[in-house]
């Protein structure tokens, strides 16, 4: 068997750690961690995270690991928000019930969060007129991505704050409040996660018991049931966050 970049890619797992504990260090955990790392969090700061899927939840955990005082989770699924509250000790906002930008300002003395993490990306859901606008333009091939979270994060973030984008964007986006971003002096940091930079440090943290990433596992199935597992994941059946297959 030929393993490309075998000197960099494979990692030896220390004794005493289960497969489930280390599985997410390969992708979801470092993605969330880099989202928080991008924010250069100072003690006392407030971080808002859009999207309480696995990556978002890891971003919330990581924000606390990196010294945030408050983390606020934003999603529309009550079950995911419950996980954020219970597993990651966040405050929560359901964007279908409340005006997210207004509430974030209200929760932070009118300032806005010090950093905003987009853990949603180009397939953002929205029940506003702007949401229909994005879908219509996408349908007409005039826009490829739906940047709803990006717009909200720019509007909510405090002056001089940081926007960290970990949700994936693929092409072209419209109606970005660039004037607000520019005049507030926001920093934008983003990109595909840098796996090798974080792997060993996260393994150490898991080994020291600072965090157990297996909390995002909602379904365990055999490899034969993989098609069904993907369907469960896609439809979010049983409040699915992550399905783990074992051979």
């Amino acid at each position: 068997m030929r393993v490309p970049f075998a000197d960099i890619g494979p990692v030896k797992i220390p004794e005493g750690l289960s497969d489930e504990q280390v599985l997410f260090i390969s992708d979801a955990f470092p993605t969330g961690y880099m989202g928080a790392d991008n924010c250069s969090i100072q003690p006392g700061q407030t971080v808002a995270v859009w999207g309480a899927g696995a990556v978002g939840l890891f971003a919330m955990k990581s924000a606390y690991l990196l010294g945030a005082s408050r983390v606020i989770a934003i999603d529309r699924f009550p079950e995911r928000l419950r996980v954020a509250r219970e597993q990651c000790q966040t405050e929560t906002l359901n964007y279908e019930d409340v005006d997210v930008v207004e509430e974030l300002k209200q929760m932070t003395g009118g300032r806005g969060p010090d950093a905003c993490i987009d853990a949603v990306g180009m397939e953002a859901h929205s029940s506003t007129i702007m949401g229909v606008y994005d879908k219509a333009k996408q349908f007409a091939r005039l826009e490829t991505d739906r940047p709803h979270v990006l717009r909200q994060a720019i509007q909510a973030c405090r002056k001089g704050g940081t926007l960290s984008i970990m949700g994936v964007y693929g092409g072209f986006i419209d109606k970005i409040p660039m004037g607000a971003a520019f005049n507030k002096g926001l920093q934008f940091r983003m990109g595909q996660m840098h796996a090798q930079k974080y792997t060993h440090m996260l393994l150490d943290r898991v080994q020291r018991g600072e965090v157990d990433p297996s909390f995002v596992i909602t379904h365990r199935m055999s490899l034969q049931d993989a098609p069904q597992g993907y369907e469960i994941f896609r439809q979010k059946i049983g409040n699915c966050l992550r399905v783990v297959f074992t051979p």
């Binding site: 279908e96 019930d97 409340v98 005006d99 207004e102 509430e103 209200q106 029940s127 506003t128 007129i129 949401g131 229909v132």
Partner: peptide, 13 residues
Amino acid sequence: VLGVSTAEKLRST
């Protein structure tokens, strides 16, 4: 049909 709502969201203000 469009999945839109302009109904007022609850505000703590």
